[in-house]
């Protein structure tokens, strides 16, 4: 397998605090890679550097050999990187369907169009995506009144709008009921399987992580401290120490 995303020596400091320090890893094509670590480990900072939201102090990020550092989130997205956020970001004044349509319209570069009615654009395609995430029944509802778990699904559908090679999912199941979590991750895994998309996700719920990830990397205080298959990471004494020390339940 070849690497879809390759991260080399990524570092970022805020003031005097080294949030991310010399982090390197790869996401292989069609792989579900989990990035875990205690609160404040630098996961979100790391994520924000991958899609161009935050400029790293040093290091490189390449997507299929193409450098992403220095590009805006827009450009990174155009190259095939979809993203969901830790706190969901959707267009709250639009319906579920319209949210997905926006991604499709932007993907086809018709966002400045003055003539067509938005409602009629890529409707079937958008419905298909919603179908995929199990949100078709709520397509006409306003995003502002959705339950949080449903919003996460909508975000996933939106992120799939540009047929991404790589999906970045920041805590995709945060705020969801346990049953929903498993469901969503199963969905994600299915998408990876069907489309060959690679996924990098962060997660607090260890059931989710160990149940679905192909590989796991562990971040602590900005450094990468362990990497490998779920079993390898589970067995890593260093990881156990951190999680027990941080008081997080670590279902082993």
């Amino acid at each position: 397998m070849t690497a879809a995303l390759s991260v080399r020596g990524l570092s970022k400091a805020f003031g005097g605090v080294q949030a991310v320090e010399n982090v390197s890893f790869e996401v292989e094509a069609g792989q579900l890679l989990a990035l875990i670590g205690p609160n404040g480990a630098g996961k979100t900072t790391c994520f924000n550097m991958l899609n161009g939201q935050l400029a790293p102090d040093s290091g490189s990020v390449t997507l299929e050999g193409r450098e992403l550092v220095g590009l805006s989130p827009r450009r990174v997205w155009r190259l095939g990187v979809g993203r969901t956020f830790q706190i969901t970001a959707t267009f709250s004044s639009m319906t579920v369907l319209e949210n997905v349509q926006m991604a499709l319209i932007s993907h086809r570069r018709r966002i400045a169009a003055m003539r067509p009615r938005t409602a009629s654009l890529y409707r079937d395609e958008a419905m298909a995506l919603l179908e995929r995430v199990g949100m078709a029944a709520q397509a006409e509802r306003a995003c502002s009144i959705l339950a949080y778990g449903d919003l996460k699904r909508v975000e996933l559908a939106v992120a799939l709008g540009n047929e991404p090679k790589l999906l970045l999912m920041d805590e995709p199941t945060a705020g969801m009921a346990p049953g929903e979590r498993v469901e969503l991750m199963a969905l994600t895994a299915g998408i990876v399987r069907d489309r060959g998309t690679s996924v990098l996700f962060t997660e607090h719920d260890m059931d989710v992580v160990f149940g679905h990830a192909d590989r796991i990397i562990v971040l602590n205080r900005g450094r990468l401290i362990a990497e490998g298959s779920p079993d390898t990471v589970r067995a890593d004494p260093h990881v156990r120490e951190i999680y027990l020390g941080a008081g997080t339940t670590f279902a082993l």
């Binding site: 939201q53 989130p73 827009r74 956020f85 267009f91 926006m102 993907h107």
Partner: peptide, 8 residues
């Protein structure tokens, strides 16, 4: 945030 993340 979302707009930029879908290329707008």
């Amino acid at each position: 945030l979302r707009a930029e993340a879908i290329g707008i």
